[in-house]
Nucleic acid binder design. Sequence first.
DNA 1: TACCGTTATATTTTCAAAGATATAACGATT
DNA 2: AATCGTTATATCTTTGAAAATATAACGGTA
Lengths: 123, 123
Amino acid sequence: MAGSIKDILKNPVGIKVNGSLWIESDGQPFFGPGPVELLERIEATGSISMAAKEMKMSYKKAWELVSQLNAQMAAPVVIPQAGGEKGGGSTITPEAAKLIQYHRQLRERFAAFLEAESARLKK
Amino acid sequence: MAGSIKDILKNPVGIKVNGSLWIESDGQPFFGPGPVELLERIEATGSISMAAKEMKMSYKKAWELVSQLNAQMAAPVVIPQAGGEKGGGSTITPEAAKLIQYHRQLRERFAAFLEAESARLKK
DNA sequence: TACCGTTATATTTTCAAAGATATAACGATT
DNA sequence: AATCGTTATATCTTTGAAAATATAACGGTA
């Protein structure tokens, strides 16, 4: 279309609309893509430290995320155990599974939005 | 609704979905909310330095944004003049106006999306 | 009790982004 | 030529976030 955005760009080939989403509570973000993946990997590995390693995230960062998440939920999403067989580990609660599922669907709807906007950009 | 996300949060009052959008070219973001506001203020003030000061952005940062934008557009969005009456100044081109208008509409559609998602969150 | 790998926490180090500062070039006006 | 406020650019400093490091606590198992 004439007068389109892509027409005024020097290199319109790789152009698209991108973005990121998160859930805010009291104005401060507390649940973005990072925590979701962390929860998924904690579920898969049974361990915060292993999940963090897989994501190339420091254990400290991972622990802070878990701690922050648990603090903001009515019930904890991760149950940690320090010590025990194999040194301990962590399991996720049904509430965590709910969060994961919700965020997955949210991401899908957002991806559709971005797709539509990217298409509009090229028209 | 039962099993909703808001039910598993400790403080569900201020909860909402938020996010940010930008345009990518070749995978690297080059046009987000900051540059738009800068362009608007350059148009209003006729000067990069005044626009930057209004936004409490360093002149350096503002100049870098302008420079980067100009480099990525087929035609420049800002025409700077160093020296001249009143020391110089900068004007924006019709292409810049197009970018501003596009981004404004994009923001509106995104706001609607976020609003819908925030509403869904509370259901 | 000694060991293990994990959770929990404090401290230090690194590093990149932002900011501050300084200086030159510019071109109309006087 | 001197002045003015702007653009243009280099360099130094600050600072804040991430990463790295270190250490203790934990609770099963052998």
